[in-house]
Design a protein around this nucleic acid. Structure first.
Length: 407
DNA sequence: TCTGGGGTCCTAGGACCC
DNA sequence: TCTGGGGTCCTAGGACCC
């Protein structure tokens, strides 16, 4: 908020969003297989209890949507082919797109793997007062030529407006909302379309008879505040008018890392869960070290067979990075969760937060006696050695736990 | 129909300190 | 003896996003 001048010049913001990104990537990765498949679902299999990450436009005609359980999607569209997410090429394409966008503005925010905001405010003269929609089309063509990825672009005076506009642009189009048209544009949406208004809030609003953005606009600011409370009422009122001062942020500081896994079948025995936890802790530790970070808080999460989510976490004074220390802590937390409720688990996960750079000032470690240390230099060396072995000989060259202990 | 994996942010209560 | 308020940190849970 403080970085918004009292009389800000009209901003010019684009959101570039890839059309059915994972489907496009899967087709590029396998031109003769998935590339020829119109009815394509990318995501988890039925056996692994997965959901659809991205559904091709051809399957959406059948009612298939991303996030839908794959089993349900296949019932709606039995002839569809399911392929896994092609992670490597998705990452490559995402980076390549960002590289193209960087040529157009220094202010690019990667909002997710398949969408990015571009702030072109103040570039009017640079682009010779070209209409924003024309600039958007040129960017879109350059992205397609450079990466083979088809995109849609939304534009307007804020991230909120650009985000909603891109929905009107799909597929492969451009939709720019002119300054001053925000309120009327917003009036054409449902409240559930506003980012931040999810299923729970939508249902609450519906109980008040509020379904469309126009409903809220007609209610007025004061009444909305009385209905929802000042905080949420004001928040929703601003959105309903298309007002959003959020800045396009270039840098992104990751606050946590996590690894979790849903099992094909619920696991009941603590020993089985510990084995999975060991593998997850190893993957998490490798992620942390790869990022040059350590973590002070470890959280273990389970999703019980009845879909109840539970978690236990512990924060320690000394930031950790080694597989052994992370697993030791995680194992205690799992024991705590198991003691509280002994029931089959469909998901197990472990997360690291309260992150500290590896090279941060470690002087405060002097506060801990050597006996109280949770992680030794040797633990760190062992984990880093394991990282190098995997780097040289492949991810499967070491089994989890192999370099974990002193034995 | 049967619900992924990777994240961010918020809330609320309790401990603890001043 | 009775009763403060503010600030920070931790923990657990949940909404929400792609």
């Amino acid at each position: 908020m403080s970085d918004v001048p009292a009389r800000a010049a009209t901003r010019r913001i684009l959101l570039l969003d890839c059309d059915q990104f994972f489907v496009q990537c899967a087709r590029l990765a396998d031109p003769d297989g998935a590339g020829r498949e119109a009815l394509l679902l990318v995501g988890g299999s039925v056996e692994s209890r997965g959901v659809v990450t991205s559904a091709s436009y051809e399957t959406r005609v059948f009612g298939v949507r991303s996030g839908m359980p794959t089993g349900q999607a296949l019932r709606l569209c039995p002839r569809a082919r399911v392929v896994p997410v092609p992670r490597r090429i998705c990452g490559e394409k995402s980076r390549a797109i960002r590289a193209v966008l960087a040529r157009w503005s220094p202010l690019v925010e990667a909002a997710s793997i398949d969408e990015a905001y571009i702030d072109l405010s103040g570039t009017e003269r640079l682009y010779h007062d070209e209409p924003l929609a024309d600039t958007a089309r040129r960017i879109q063509r350059e992205v397609l030529a450079g990466t083979q990825i088809q995109t849609s672009v939304g534009g307007g005076t804020s991230k909120l407006v650009a985000k909603l506009a891109v929905e009107r642009a799909k597929p492969a189009g451009v939709h720019v909302v002119a300054p001053g048209e925000e309120r009327a544009f917003l009036a054409t949406f449902r409240l559930a379309d506003i980012p931040g208004v999810g299923p729970v809030f939508t249902e609450e609003l519906r109980r008040y008879g509020l379904v469309s953005v126009a409903d809220v606009q007609g209610l007025g600011e004061k009444t909305l505040g009385e209905v929802l409370g000042a905080g949420r009422g004001d928040w929703l009122w601003q959105k309903a008018l298309g007002i959003d001062h959020g800045a396009v942020h270039v840098e992104h500081e990751q606050k946590s890392f996590s690894r979790d896994e849903t099992f094909p079948r619920d696991l009941h025995r603590t020993g089985e869960l510990e084995k999975e936890l060991l593998a997850l802790a190893g993957r998490l530790g490798a992620d942390l070290r790869d990022a040059g970070m350590r973590a002070r808080t470890i959280t273990v999460r389970v999703r019980d067979a009845d879909f109840r989510n539970r978690s236990a976490s512990r924060t320690v004074a000394e930031p950790l990075e080694s597989d052994r220390a992370i697993y030791a802590l995680a194992r205690e937390l799992l024991a705590k969760l198991r003691a509280a409720r002994r029931i089959g688990a469909r998901l197990l996960g472990v997360a690291a937060s309260n992150l500290v750079p590896q090279d941060a000032d470690a002087s405060q470690l002097g506060l801990f006696g050597e006996s109280a240390r949770l992680e030794s230099e040797k633990d760190r060396r062992l984990s880093r050695t394991a990282d190098e072995i995997r780097e040289r000989f492949g991810r499967n060259s070491l089994k989890p736990g192999r370099l974990l202990s002193d034995e």
